[in-house]
Every structure is written in structure tokens, then in C-alpha cells.
Design a protein around this nucleic acid. Structure first.
Length: 560
RNA sequence: GGCCCCAUCGUCUAGUCAGGUCCAGGACACCAGGUUUUCAUCCUGGGAACAGGGGUUCGAAUCCCCUUGGGGUCACCA
């Protein structure tokens, strides 16, 4: 039997790390067994689904190196998708669902129900107060055939519910083992909504059967749903796939990793800094209207639109936690490292093996080594893995990947630096970069205008510039002519000239020259190696910055 | 709250299914030294766990029970 797995995202929002791990496991399981991996878009919620989100999911998967044998096709990914079991958007399969629905209706295994949302809510509230689990009361079953026909004819809104057999259901799961749900635990759930779309439960069962899915690997939140899917499979005469439920990925504090964490982080920062008003955008308008802002600030269940949220965080210089695959990409993580690390959250290869690629994962992945307990996502370890991968790169590979990253996220570096300068930056940054983003994020001074550099007098600046005999600022003035007169303004020439200067003027203590220079050209005490930094900047900028620095800091210099 | 599931260092985990080779191994983090023009690396060393309580057994991290703790679920969302 051919192994067929599928990843079936709902196209709302973005692919997050939990979903990415599920997709990766599904992909690996099929790949390692010469099977097929299917991508199916579950867009039966018309309000929440969007084409943009579907596209985003596909791009994120492709970026991770997860390709699908069957599923939607987009021009930019000609090697993914296609297949004989389409369409792969559920919204295009309505006719198929209806046929199977009719079978259930005809056999009496499903029935129309006309309960209003208000009535159902009242029932749920009552159950909550009575501290029991809510179960649908089958009110609609009391209606006679004529009454049902009349209501339907009158166009009353109706859902279709599945008549769940009143008996215990045993779920067989390759990860968690067997579990039996007592009779009555699963109620008569809705299988077609009033808008005519199938619910998740119905569509997933029909599609998995028709697409010949043999193994369903999905998040543990679906565990109880499996019982629903099993009774549906029985009623429809479908074979059951093998199930495996994956534990969730949690935050370090044990809370569930969620998009809301971004709102949470920003809200916390806003509170801590006692920011009252919403920041303004370029046009001087608040980034969100005052009403929304106030509601968001006061109510932790309110979420801001992601684009706005990120714009505000950017304006306030608040780092938002990475949740989605695209967040990790923007932060400069390598896709192969993300996959590697993600696969380690919930699975292990054994033999103390933890650095491997997707091909190895496909070869070795199996359900018997999948962890049952939830894992907390440790960004520190991910970062360490990313560092290791970057350190293992050739300079050429790093440069080309850094360039691609800059094209996507820091185009100003490509505008301001020529090819040689950019190459120098990469070379100077590689061994101190943990991410592809670091060369740019930490070196903005390279692309700032000379006049834009400022020198806040922090402790390290005070130490390097004002302390010592002679003070760093004086050293800076003395080394300036060396830079002005040097013939070739490039790294090795600068190194010999400045080292010689240090020998002559600072007892060979290079730091006493390098730090003042670093501060003068960058505005702070941190930069790539000083000779590279100077070379990238070029003589003109370096001298201009030194001159302004001498002027500005001389005014701040303590008199004694 | 009902139902279901789970439980090894701070974190991810190896070892659990076939009880002894485990006074529990690796990685990240942490701590202490060292290298270094800043930062980041890098090197050396160190501390750190079988949730608790009962069984079964010659012997239990491994099997059973209880307690505690954690997770999932209880939608016309998926």
C-alpha cells in the first residue's frame, strides 16, 4: 500500500511553527516510504479564508524545503502540486461533499436541525453553569418528517447533524496508543453549516478517503475529533487511515504558542513604558484609531491587525516574538536549521544525533520515536544551531545568502554599498553572526548618512573616549592624519598603519586606538573588526565622522 | 467542571515497549577560568533530572496503583 500523508491548513493567518512541524513530519513520513505527500487547503470557513493566506502557506512550505506531490499549483513553484485527486481547495469540492451528505441523509444517519445560535448558546451556558460538558440535545429529532419538509420549504436556515451512534468509541493512535471515549461523549455534531459548506469534520473525512490518505499525522488538538471522524467513516463506508497525534509546541513559560503572543509582547512593552497614545505613522496619523488603540490596550483578548501591530512594534522598537515561519525567515534563521530544530521538538533520531537535514529526517522519521508530551520551544537552542550552521558555511555561501536576505529585508544596504563593500561586510560579519539578519541589523551605521551619526555618552563610550592618559578622544585626533594620509584605504593597509601607530603611541595597545575609532565611525562601542569597518566606510566617511565626533564629544568631555 | 492523554537536568531529549551494563548519556542554557581591538565566537572545567507515595521483583527511570502536576477537548473554527 502506498503511504499517503497530507497537510491540510486552514488558510487564515500564517503558517506557524507548530503547523510547520506537522507538515515536516507528514512530508518526511511519506518521503521516507516512497509515498505521496498531499497539500490540501481547508477553506470551508468562508469568513476567515483568503487566497493570500493560501499563497503564503505555500511559499512558507517551499521556503522550508517541504514540497508536495499533490495539491495546488502556483507558477512560482512549478515542481509542487498537481495530482489526480483534485481539486485541492475544499471550497471547490462542494458537489462532492453534497453527494456523500445525501447518502447519509437518505439512510437516516444525518438529519436537518433548525436550532438558532441563541438556542444553542443558551444550552451551552446552562451546561457550563451545571459544570457538565455540553452535548447537543437532539431537539431536531423530535420534529416530524412533515415539519422538517415544511421548514425546509419555507427556507428556514438549517444545518445537518450526524446522528452519532450511542456507544463507546475506541481511538487507535500510533503515537498515543488506544483510548476509549465513553458512549455519549461525542454528540450529534454539525456536518453541514447553514451556508451550505461542510464542516471540517465532514470535509476532512471525505477528502482523506477520496485522496487515499493512509496516514493522518496532525496536532493533538484533533485527538477527540478522531472519534467523530471514525463514526463518520463507518457510516460512509470508508476505510480508516492510521492516525498519529502530535503534541503541541509551547512557549517557554508553558503557555500555548499563539499569534496572540505578539499582541501580548507589544502590550506589555506599552504598559511598561507607560505609553498612552498610539505612535504616529509617516503622515502624522496614529497607526490605529484611538478607539481601537484604547480597546486593545485594555483588553488582552483584542488583537490588532498583524501589519499594524508590526508597524507599531517597529516604531516603538519592540521585538515581537517569532511565531510564524515568516517571522523566523525575517529574523534571519536558515530554513534547514528551522526544520532541523523543529523536528527535534517532539521527535529524536536516537544515538545523540541532533544535527541533520531533511533528507536524513525522511530516512529516519518514524512514529515510534515521537514524543507524547508537549515541548517548550527554546529559541536559544535554535539560535545556537543557526550560529553553527552559519559558521560552517563557506564565505561565498554566506555572502550569497546574506545578499538574498538583504534583498528581501534590508534593500538599503544594497543601495548604499557597492559590490565590494557588501562583500567586505559579509566577510567581516560572518563569524560573528548568529543569523542572516545580524550583519544588517547591527550595522545600520554603515548605511546612515555621515551627518546622522550621533554619540550618546554611554558608559563604554565615556570609558573609551574620556578616560586614560591620553584620553581616547585625543588619540582619535592624533590618529586622524594617519588615516588621511594612508595611500590605500583598505583593510590590511589600515591594519599595518594603525598597528604601527598603536606601537608608537599606545604601547602597542591596539584597543586604545580601535575603540575611539569604532565609536567615532559607528556611534557606539560595537562594530565588525575595526579595519574592515573603516575600509567599508571609505576614507571620506571615516574622516567626516571622526571630525564631527571630535567636535561633538569635545563639548561633552569632563574638564578634568 | 466532564471526558481523554501525558510526566527523565532550567529547556529539547537518550534510556522505558523486551527490569540489571544508568550513583542516568548528549545538546542548548547556566556558572568558573582562558583566548580576543569592541561585540560575537572559540577553548577548558563545573553544577544540574528519573514529580511524590505505595506496590510487584533478588533487582525499577523502566511494570502496576494512587496522589500531584501538565496538556488536549467540550463551535454552524479548523
Amino acid at each position: 500500500m502506498t503511504v499517503v500523508t497530507r497537510f491540510a491548513p486552514s488558510p487564515s493567518g500564517h503558517l506557524h511553527v507548530g503547523g510547520a512541524r506537522t507538515a515536516l513530519y507528514c512530508w518526511a513520513y511519506a518521503r521516507g516510504r516512497d509515498g505521496r505527500f498531499v497539500l490540501r487547503i481547508e477553506d470551508t470557513d468562508r469568513k476567515r479564508s483568503s487566497d493570500a493566506a493560501s499563497l503564503g502557506f505555500m511559499r512558507d512550505l517551499a521556503w522550508l524545503g517541504i514540497d508536495w506531490n499533490e495539491g495546488p499549483t502556483i507558477p512560482e513553484l512549478p515542481d509542487c502540486g498537481g495530482g489526480d485527486h483534485g481539486p485541492y481547495f475544499q471550497s471547490e469540492r462542494l458537489q462532492i461533499y453534497q453527494e456523500h451528505l445525501d447518502r447519509l441523509l437518505a439512510s437516516g444517519r444525518a438529519y436537518h436541525a433548525f436550532d438558532t445560535p441563541e438556542e444553542l448558546d443558551a444550552g451551552r451556558r446552562a451546561a457550563r453553569e451545571a459544570k457538565v460538558a455540553y452535548r447537543y440535545d437532539r431537539a431536531a429529532l423530535k420534529l416530524s418528517e412533515e415539519e422538517v419538509a415544511a421548514k425546509l420549504a419555507a427556507g428556514e436556515p438549517a444545518v445537518i447533524r450526524f446522528r452519532t451512534p450511542d456507544e463507546p468509541i475506541t481511538i487507535v493512535d500510533e503515537v498515543l496508543g488506544e483510548a476509549t471515549l465513553p458512549a455519549g461523549e461525542i454528540d450529534d455534531f454539525v456536518i453541514r453549516k447553514a451556508d451550505g459548506y461542510p464542516t471540517y469534520h465532514f470535509a476532512v473525512v471525505v477528502d482523506d478517503a477520496l485522496m487515499k490518505v493512509s496516514h493522518v499525522l496532525r496536532a493533538q488538538e484533533h485527538f477527540n475529533n478522531t472519534a467523530r471522524h471514525m463514526v463518520l467513516q463507518d457510516a460512509l463506508g470508508f476505510e480508516r487511515p492510521t492516525y498519529g497525534h502530535l503534541s503541541l509546541i509551547m512557549n517557554p513559560d508553558g503557555s500555548k504558542m499563539s499569534k496572540r503572543d505578539k499582541d501580548k509582547a507589544l502590550r506589555a512593552a506599552v504598559r511598561e513604558r507607560e505609553i498612552e497614545a498610539c505612535p504616529l505613522d509617516d503622515t502624522g496619523e496614529p497607526m490605529v484609531d484611538g478607539d481601537t488603540w484604547d480597546r486593545w490596550r485594555g483588553d488582552k483578548t483584542v488583537q490588532l491587525d498583524l501589519d499594524r501591530l508590526e508597524a507599531i512594534a517597529d516604531a516603538l522598537d519592540v521585538a515581537l516574538p517569532e511565531i510564524n515561519v515568516s517571522d523566523f525567515r525575517r529574523s534571519g534563521y536558515l530554513p534547514e536549521v528551522l526544520c532541523n530544530f523543529l523536528s527535534l521538538n517532539g521527535w529524536s533520531a536516537g544515538d545523540d544525533l541532533e544535527k541533520f537535514d531533511n533528507a536524513f529526517l525522511a530516512e529516519r522519521f518514524d512514529l515510534d520515536r515521537v514524543q507524547k508530551a508537549p515541548a517548550k520551544f527554546d529559541r536559544d537552542k535554535l539560535l545556537a544551531f543557526n550560529l553553527d550552521a552559519i559558521q560552517a558555511m563557506t564565505p561565498e555561501e554566506f555572502a550569497s545568502r546574506a545578499r538574498a536576505h538583504a534583498e528581501a529585508f534590508h534593500p538599503e544596504f544594497l543601495d548604499r554599498l557597492d559590490g565590494d563593500q557588501f562583500a567586505m561586510l559579509c566577510e567581516a560579519s560572518r563569524e560573528r553572526s548568529k543569523t542572516l539578519d545580524e550583519p544588517f541589523r547591527t550595522n545600520r551605521f554603515l548605511v546612515d548618512a555621515d551627518e546622522a551619526i550621533a554619540w550618546p555618552v554611554t558608559k563604554p563610550v565615556r570609558k573609551a573616549m574620556f578616560k586614560g592618559e591620553p584620553a581616547g578622544l585625543e588619540m582619535l585626533g592624533r590618529v586622524r592624519p594617519v588615516l588621511n594620509e594612508i595611500e590605500e584605504f583598505e583593510s590590511s593597509a589600515l591594519e599595518s598603519a594603525i598597528t604601527a601607530f598603536a606601537e608608537a603611541e599606545a604601547e602597542g595597545n591596539l584597543g586604545r586606538i580601535a575603540q575611539p575609532l569604532r565609536i567615532a565611525v559607528s556611534g557606539g562601542p560595537v562594530s565588525p573588526p575595526i579595519f574592515d569597518t573603516l575600509a567599508i566606510l571609505g576614507r571620506e566617511s571615516v574622516l567626516a565622522r571622526i571630525d564631527r565626533c571630535l567636535e561633538v564629544l569635545a563639548a561633552e568631555m569632563p574638564s578634568s
